[in-house]
């Protein structure tokens, strides 16, 4: 049954972009009918498409405008003020942004956030992809495995945080006991500035792979496991299998996963805050912890909003880059 995945897609493959799908409108109406009569059809079709599209988008767009875009706009406005909750906001121009440029804690928190992102995104992507690939087949054992891998996703942050703090206790924690039994050096985990980031990364990865495994599972249906196994047995390296078998078919969903993971990592907050409050000595102090503390602990809402705008800009640019990357790679078949 499994044939070459590329051969799976006769006719028009999804060549029009995992990124900015920018198919020429005329192409859409490319049908068997040609000639003068079809011009009117094309026109009507185009109008119909646009009408249906706008109607389809209306509820979500109105909702997003009102409950997300408008608050965002307000936040941007606040970013140009010195609002402190108790007195009316005054416009102070670019002062918040100028301050940001010279704030060492901002730079340090941003750096730490990037470090976290660079470690988090590929790890979760590869883990969840591997798990999805291995768990595609319908079988009773896979139902169990999938459920177990998904369980952390459903666990509340508060409980996940305290559980991992307990497991990663530097003195008597289970993980260090295990390391000791294997004659490996025990780690200080959250008790040292060197390993603190690791001690928040591990729980975050643990909690997220199940989620992205599901996303990839839902998208992986066209990549049969048998085919991957066959390729591996034929001597293809896992990297080759990934590049030539999995990725081409998973491009749209991979793009989605990577973008969502990146956004999530750059905005990471709850899990770390529950576990370490950004400590010890700022070792896990991410940008969002800084934003949160500025806004809610120090009431510097203007400065916090300005930092959020900067973070937004960063995420926006990164997403555009990812968009380009995924689209560029797509034109392979």
């Amino acid at each position: 049954m499994p044939t070459s995945p590329r051969a799976n897609k006769p006719g028009s493959p999804p060549e029009k972009g995992a990124g900015l799908g920018s198919g020429a409108p005329a192409e859409r109406a490319r049908g068997p009918v040609r000639g003068p009569a079809s011009i009117r059809t094309v026109d009507r079709d185009r109008r119909e498409q646009a009408l249906v599209a706008y109607l389809f988008l209306l509820p979500d767009v109105v909702g997003l405008l009102f409950f997300l875009a408008l608050p965002m706009l307000l936040a941007v406005v606040i970013g140009f003020t010195n609002w402190n909750v108790v007195t009316a906001p005054q416009f102070i121009g670019l002062q918040n942004f100028i301050r940001m440029a010279t704030d060492p804690l901002f730079a340090a928190s941003l750096g730490r956030t990037l470090l976290y992102t660079v470690s988090f995104v590929p790890t979760v992507y590869l883990f969840s992809l591997g798990m999805a690939v291995l768990l595609t087949r319908r079988s009773r054992s896979n139902v169990i495995f999938r459920t177990i891998y998904f369980m952390p996703v459903a666990m509340s942050l508060l409980v996940a945080g305290v559980t991992w703090r307990f497991l990663l206790d530097p003195n008597a924690g289970l993980v260090n006991m295990l390391l000791g039994a294997l004659h490996l050096p025990k780690l200080q985990w959250a008790g040292s500035v060197q390993t603190a980031m690791l001690s928040v990364l591990i729980p975050a990865i643990w909690k997220n792979v199940g989620y992205f495994m599901i996303i990839l599972l839902a998208g992986i249906q066209d990549v049969p496991r048998e085919y991957i196994e066959a390729a591996l047995l034929d001597g293809a390296s896992p990297l080759q299998v990934y590049r030539h078998v999995i990725l081409p078919l998973l491009k749209p969903v991979s793009f989605f996963v990577v973008v969502i993971l990146t956004i999530g990592a750059l905005q990471t907050f709850d899990q770390i805050y529950v576990m370490t409050r950004g400590g010890p000595a700022y070792a896990t102090h991410t940008l969002l912890i800084y934003i949160y503390e500025k806004a809610f602990k120090e009431w510097k809402l203007g400065y916090a909003a300005a930092m959020s705008v900067a973070l937004f800009a960063l995420i926006f640019i990164l997403t555009l880059i990812q968009m380009r990357y995924f689209r560029a790679d797509e034109r392979r078949d």
Binding site: A50, L57, D60, V61, M72, I263, F312, F316
Partner: peptide, 26 residues
Amino acid sequence: EFPGRNFLFIGILSTLMVPFYTILIP
């Protein structure tokens, strides 16, 4: 296909990019 499709898509996508704590008060 409709005019403004890419713009709308990026616009929609960008609503994911603001941390919730930032828009909480607004």
